[in-house]
Design a protein around this nucleic acid. Structure first.
Lengths: 154, 154
DNA sequence: ACAAATCCTACTCTGTTAGTAGGAATATGT
DNA sequence: ACATATTCCTACTAACAGAGTAGGATTTGT
């Protein structure tokens, strides 16, 4: 498993806030209660999102959080990258530039690099808006049984 | 990270054995030495591969392991699935049939399911033969800088 | 002043990862 | 027959990451 509860809950929070677009600030306790998640734990997660510039926050009574941008301007990759630190499927691919010393001769490296790109490519193509709109076709593609057949699959 | 050293080393072993196709049995110590990996640790990993029917083994002097099939008949997904147990990127997608009780109302589930399929799709399309042939085009696709542009990218 | 909220630091419990250790069973060459 | 090289099998351990908990300081609306 590559995405922990941290990233998953972060996405859940973002989706919740996206659904509230146009409304005011939403408090942590509201979200925690709605999603049946630990408020204290969510606090530490939302703090990462906030420091990463994903949210606007307001302290004090009636305070809370809201999205800093439009839902369509968040892709899922950036949300998960921020909270998880990395989405790399293996240790030997951590950051751009940093690589294993055996890289030059490693015959499996292209596989891992390709997998990394496949994951990154998938997640960066999907936005928060896609999720709140339930865009199954985009998310599930040819695997979606409730979608009509796509033209690319012929 | 989704693939641990277990799966990574397992793949390395399989690639090593694939390169030896047609030769006899290769001993664990040979592989461990060649790859600079702990022999004892490799032992526990190769045992999984063997029990999973991926290998043929021979005990005693001059014994060792070899592939049970042709390199082109192994896809990477099955090797990693066997050793890692699962390749699911999140906990809420574990096995076919088993699913989270919130599945029916969860708006992020299609995303995770789609990601899972993207990973599975990528890994099952690549074979051991692709790796030993260094088929960068198949592994890296449009991200491969040393490959000529593909027709699908236009 | 008070209550409701965000912010901040530190701690804990648990499971997984990445091995290590020791020996039993089995086949081969001499 | 015997030493040796190998696979097989069970058990153990140290370190780290994941998933929270705990307690309070700070800010703001009423």
């Amino acid at each position: 498993m590559m995405v922990s509860t941290k990233g998953r809950y972060a996405l859940t929070v973002m989706v919740d806030l996206a659904r509230n677009e146009g409304g005011g600030y939403v408090s942590l306790s509201d979200i925690a209660e709605k999603e049946h998640l630990s408020m204290k734990y969510l606090e530490s997660i939302i703090s990462i999102l906030n420091k990463g510039g994903m949210l606007m926050s307001l302290r004090g009574k009636n305070g809370g959080y809201k999205l800093a941008r439009d839902p369509k301007d968040y892709n899922i990759s950036e949300i998960l990258l921020l909270t998880e630190g990395t989405l790399a499927p293996v240790n030997c691919i951590m950051q751009e530039g940093v690589q294993c010393e055996k890289a030059a001769t490693c015959s499996t490296l292209p596989l891992w690099a390709g997998l990394d790109k496949a994951i990154e490519g998938y997640l960066s193509a999907i936005t928060l808006e896609d999720i709140i709109n339930g865009n199954r076709k985009k998310m599930l593609g040819d695997y979606c049984e409730s979608c009509e057949p796509s033209e690319t699959a012929e």
